[in-house]
Amino acid sequence: MTQAEIRGEAPGADYTFAYLDEQTKRMIRRALLKALAVPGYQVPFASREMPMPYGWGTGGVQVSAAVLTPEDTLKVIDQGADDTTNAVSIRKFFQKTAGIAVTEHTGEATVIQTRHRIPEAPLTEGQILVYQVPIPEPLRFLEPRETETRRMHALEEYGLMHVKLYEDIARHGEIATAYAYPVKIEGRYVMDPSPIPKFDNPKLRMAAIQLFGAGREQRIYALPPYTEVVSLDFEDHPFVPGKAEGACALCGSETSYLDEVIVDDRGGRMFVCSDTDYCAGRRAAGYRGEMAAEEGGA
């Protein structure tokens, strides 16, 4: 065994395993354990400089770096897709610094780092879903003072969260919040689930561990498996996750979250699954959407 291997570093690499030094990873793991022990509570951590800009999910990357082991298989998605610039570069980053296996298949991954989506396929026990979080504080919108929002969390003073929903209804006739829809965790902490569509909110109660990392804001929070997650609402304006407005043009799915894509320069458009792996899996299993024939014939 080489010294590098004994230290847990990828053989031959110039980096510590998964880029961060062991001390930093220990610090992040302590924050993660605390976050798991108090679901929905934002734990401060000393965010490190990462070799990428903040908007690229440095919080999620640090959390992934702290939980990855050499045996892990990593999947990275951005808006549900494995092949966007952001997802590709984060995946490459960990291939290079950790030498780990990567996959695009949700079912094969042990760690999934995500931005803006929860995979369609139900996650299972033993998997870890890591979210990139831009703004961890759900109360920030109406109360910019950090000292005050902390006190509100401590004292469970969450009336303000409903003021935000009230304003929505007053202005738009319904709760117009479509992303980062606030949730209450185990009847205690109000949490921002990161900018996932509210469509994904019902999936937040799941078998996998969910870890949330905000790099610029230096906060980590978490949901252990099967944590109770309730989307905030009013009795007479109940939470509606919304449903697909059509079927995926490629795989025909009527239950998955769809993205609208422009297909030509004449304004032609179609709706396809935002979860590229889910869509490919369905097509591989023989499901076809209305545009799939063209695709097959090409």
């Binding site: 303000l160 409903h162 003021v163 009230y166 009013f234 009795e235 007479d236």
Partner: peptide, 14 residues
């Protein structure tokens, strides 16, 4: 005006 009501648990928008 509604904030104090919501702060003490009012959950009916109407």
């Amino acid at each position: 005006v509604g904030e104090r009501l919501m702060a003490v648990g009012a959950r009916n928008y109407g």
